[in-house]
Design a protein around this nucleic acid. Sequence first.
DNA 1: ATGGCAGAAGCATTCTGA
Length: 281
Amino acid sequence: MLIATWNVNSIRTRLSQIIDWINQVNPDILCLQETKVIDDNFPFEPFEKLGYSLEVYGQKSYNGVAIISKIKLENVKKGFYDCTDSNQNIENFLDQKRLISADIHGIKIINVYVPNGSSLESSKFEYKINWLNSLASFLDEQEKKGELICLMGDFNVAPSALDIHDPKKYEGRIMASEMERDALNNVLKKRLIDSFRIFEQNTGHWSWWDYRNNAFELNKGWRIDHIYISKQLLSKLKSCVIDCSPRGNLRPSDHAPVMIDLNLNDINEDLFSDEDNFFEI
DNA sequence: ATGGCAGAAGCATTCTGA
């Protein structure tokens, strides 16, 4: 099963490029971020014609997330819920549409658009850290319920220096600071694995290139879009790739899609019993 | 240190993103 994530920077501007990509790649599930449209104006029909069902959670101009799926989506939830950590006031995040989740084949798909944060001195940075702390609380609750997780989206955090084209220039700054990395690691804890790093340990792989300064042509990118899976799913993970090609389109999104192949054919039979689910992180 | 590029809203220019 192919599961993909893509920050498209406006669903309406990017619609034909997204449809082209779907026709090429044929993903089973595609999670989008920065759709930038209210739900009533979302272009459902082009996706439905290709056999997909959709769940959208958008707003005017900013943010907005969607799950496009060939498989029936169950237990669809919009925004944070069930956070019992009293330090996390999830009501604070109701106005910005940044998270949507749904169950597919016994796995909880969580699609996130993490706030950018602007700069470390900005109040938006505080918002980003608080948002990530609420995401951690949200995942704590999912873990208590024994949910298997596939958490993906635009995290606006480069997990390590390997994930930045010029780490010395940006280390400690926005998307590369210790506070952001700590907050991200507190989301992941020991329960979630970076799919991409299972297959590739070297630097030089990016999912986002700034529109400015010819960043894509010069390949000056960052890896800030991620697909994290529960460690129990590791034995089912067959691949993880970043498809750079749409970034070379005319009027592209500044992000490229990231995709995993997860073997879920036999998930119900052996998921909780197989010895091959045990491994060292 | 600053701006550069792009999208939405809406019609000149501002806000936001990363």
